[in-house]
Design a protein around this nucleic acid. Sequence first.
DNA 1: CGTTCTCTTGACTCATCTCAAATCTGGTGG
DNA 2: CCACCAGATTTGAGATGAGTCAAGAGAACG
Lengths: 242, 242
Amino acid sequence: MEINFRCGECPIRHRAICAYCDEPELERLDDIKSYKAYSAGETIVWAGEEAPLIGSLVSGVATLSRSLKDGRRQMVGLLLPSDFIGRPGRKVAPYDVVAANDVLICQFRVNKFNILIDDTPALERRLLDMTMDELDSAREWMLLLGRKTAREKIASVLVIFARRGAELQHSELGDGLRFEVPLTREAMADYLGLTIETVSRQFSALKKSGVIIMEDARHIRVPDYVRLLNEASDDSDGGVIA
Amino acid sequence: MEINFRCGECPIRHRAICAYCDEPELERLDDIKSYKAYSAGETIVWAGEEAPLIGSLVSGVATLSRSLKDGRRQMVGLLLPSDFIGRPGRKVAPYDVVAANDVLICQFRVNKFNILIDDTPALERRLLDMTMDELDSAREWMLLLGRKTAREKIASVLVIFARRGAELQHSELGDGLRFEVPLTREAMADYLGLTIETVSRQFSALKKSGVIIMEDARHIRVPDYVRLLNEASDDSDGGVIA
DNA sequence: CGTTCTCTTGACTCATCTCAAATCTGGTGG
DNA sequence: CCACCAGATTTGAGATGAGTCAAGAGAACG
C-alpha cells in the first residue's frame, strides 16, 4: 500500500516540524519525504543504529526508550502525532523507537534533511521550540519518576491518556469521559519506572476506590476528572506554560 | 564588588550560548549583559516568577528543581559552567534555580535578549544544540531515576563529579583521582530521588567496599575509576554522543 | 479449541523510607 | 584558645511500598 499526501493536506501540518514553513519550504520538504507505516510492536529505530531515521509521527503512538546492560528498561519519551523523531546531524541513535500501536511516519531522507535544516530558519526555529517543549516534559517526568508513588504515577499517565483521548475526539475534558489506554501494561511499567504487577495492582486499586471504571483492560471511564487530577498530585500552582 | 569582563576574555566563551558568535555579535551581547554573583544557598529564580532571568552560568554549580505541593522535591537539572539559564520568550519560570555554591552568572537583559536571538542565527543554533544536549541528559537521568538502585545512583553522581573535577583541574580521568562533592547530601537526595539518609548510607557502603575513600564528607578519592563506572551500571554500549 | 499473550492476584521478600538519636563540623563569642 | 551552637552528616531500628516469584484468569488468534 502506497500512502502519500501532500504536506498541505497533512493532518499534523500545523503542529509538526513544518509548522512554521511557508509554501515554497513545504515543497522542498515534500521532495524529500515519504510515508512509512509500522505495525504495533515493530521497532522503528534500534539504539546504536547508524544514520537513524528522521521524521514526524503522523498517527499512532510510539515510545522512546533506553536500557541498561542487564535489561532494565526505561521509557524516556512518548511520541504522539506531530512529534519529531531524530536529531539532525546525529550519527548514532541513542534510543530505541518502538511502535506502540500501528503507526504512520513521515520520514525525511536523512542527508537531505540535514542540509535543508541548515538553511531553513523556519525549520530550525520550530525544532528549537519543540525541543524545549520536550525538555520541559522530560523534566516533568523526572519529578514523577523520582518522587511520585505508584498510585500517583498511574493517575498521572491516565491524565495524559485522557487529554490525548479528548483531543482525538475533539471533546472536552470533564466528568464521565472515556478513553483508550494506548500502551500495554508492560510499556506503562517501563514508562513509569514500575513493574508490570505494580501497574496492574494500582489499576485495580484506583478501580476499587471508584476513581476509574474499567470497561476492559484498555478502556477507562472517569466519573470525576478533578478527582483523577488530585490522585496524580500534579501541582497546578507553579504552572508550566510557555 | 563590580565584576566585569569582555566576552572575548570570558572563561566560558567557547562553550556557552555565545559559542558560535563572531566578533560583531559578541559586541551586541556585551551591551546587554552584566555579571551578577550569588552566594551558596541563594535562590536565583523562583518557580512561578515572571520574566525570569536569562543568562549563562560562568562559575560554580546551580540546581534546577521542581516541587510537589506537599513539599516533595526533585532536582531536574544540574547547571555547570557554560550552561544556559532560562527559555527565551517564556513568561513564567517553571523551576527554582538555586545556587549550590557561590555562583557567577552572566545575565542578559530579558527583553533585549529575546529580540537579539530572533535575528542572530548563531545564537539560535547554539541554543538548539545546547537544548538537545540537555534533553539527552534529562533522558539519561530518567533512566537513573526510574531504574537504578540507590547504590548505582550514588556511583552515577560521583562519576559526574569526577568528570567535572578532572575538567576543572585539566587532569585526566583515571585511577587515584580526587574531587570535590559540590552538593550537600540533601541536594544529592533531591537530584537522585532518594532521601538524605539513603544517600549517606550508600556513601558509607561504597566506602566500606573500597570503591571510594572519603577524606571528609565533601572530598572523595577513587582508587579504581573503572570500578566506580561499573558500580554506576552506565551502559557504554548504546553510547550517546551527538 | 488449544496456544499464546496479556493481565490480574496472592504470598512473601527486600530496598528504601521514616523516625530518632548520636556525631561531626565550622563558626562565634568570650 | 576554648566552649558552645547550628547545621550537616552518619547511624540505628523498625515500618512499608514496591519488587519477585508463582499461579490463575481472560482475550486474541490461528
